[in-house]
């Protein structure tokens, strides 16, 4: 790994609603070493060059989900993308696509938070279990069914990648759909009947056109495209079963 310091040009989207009519790009010359992430580049800009640049970040290790941005036009976590991979070209950083910009690289997250709340992302048990009964038994194979979908860090890269969400933000979107799937597949849960209406609603799975870009950009290999498409099958089954079973089909 090259440890000597070089200079890279970072072109950063700026938008301060109190003073800027429209977003614009501002260029900064940033010294970097091979181990530096885009996030560290932005921190350098904020500390040394332009204190008013705003962006979200925290953990620096791709688990808190704060620093999703468009980097050279691709949704990525800034802490997890390295300056060396763009050098000697200019690196372009913008706020995540498909969301309103609050300021600079900060997007408005209200829509996703409302969606997350709407999907009932918690265990719904038919008969609640007492603590004295100990844990539910769940085999490694049962855990395996949903574990990948439980790894979503809510970074919203998949929403920025999803062309359908870009066209119609009512679409529930890949991340929330993966979480629906995560709970529906959990052997401890009996709530799928309550969640399915969301899945086959107008804003549900059938909006997905199976582009699969959401799964490509996911930094945690959650594979939301797969969740969406399994739910299409489930939704279709559910739709037809409603005609033959009196209370509809749960799980």
């Amino acid at each position: 790994m090259n440890t000597s310091e070089r200079m890279i040009t970072m072109e950063v989207l700026r938008y301060r609603p109190e003073q800027d009519e429209t977003p614009f790009f501002q260029q900064f010359l940033v010294p970097f070493t091979d181990d530096m992430s885009v996030l560290q580049g932005l921190q350098y800009i904020k500390d040394e060059l332009e204190g008013s640049l705003s962006f979200r970040w925290s953990c620096r290790m791709a688990i808190c989900g704060s620093c999703g941005m468009m980097i050279n036009g691709v949704p990525k976590l800034a802490c997890h993308t390295f300056l060396r991979d763009t050098y000697p070209n200019t690196l372009r950083v913008e706020a995540l696509a498909h969301f309103p910009i609050e300021r600079d690289l900060v997007i408005v997250m209200d829509d996703f938070m409302a969606k997350l709340e709407s999907i009932r992302p918690y265990i719904i048990a038919d008969t609640p279990r007492a603590l004295s009964e100990g844990e539910y038994l769940q085999t490694p194979a049962q855990l395996d069914l949903y574990e990948q979908f439980s790894s979503c860090i809510n970074c919203l890269l998949c929403y920025a990648a999803c062309p359908q969400y870009g066209l119609n933000s009512k679409f529930i979107g890949p991340g929330a759909m993966a979480l629906v799937h995560r709970y529906n597949l959990d052997s401890r849960d009996s709530g799928s009947a309550q969640r399915m209406p969301l899945v086959h609603a107008e804003e549900g799975v059938f909006n997905c056109t199976a582009v699969g870009y959401c799964s490509q950009v996911c930094p945690k290999k959650v594979d939301p495209a797969n969740a969406v498409n399994i739910n299409k099958t489930e939704s279709a089954k559910d739709y037809f079963l409603r005609f033959v079973t009196p209370k509809g089909a749960g799980k």
């Binding site: 918690y122 265990i123 048990a125 609640p128 279990r129 603590l131 100990g134 844990e135 539910y136 038994l137 769940q138 085999t139 490694p140 049962q142 855990l143 949903y146 574990e147 439980s150 709970y183 959990d186 401890r188 849960d189």
Partner: peptide
């Protein structure tokens, strides 16, 4: 232990032994 069982009831995906126990 009681609190970790509570977390389990709330859905925490704790790693399991082959028999399904924590």
């Amino acid at each position: 232990t009681e609190e970790l069982v509570q977390m389990e009831h709330w859905g925490c995906p704790w790693s399991r032994k082959p028999d399904g126990h924590i």
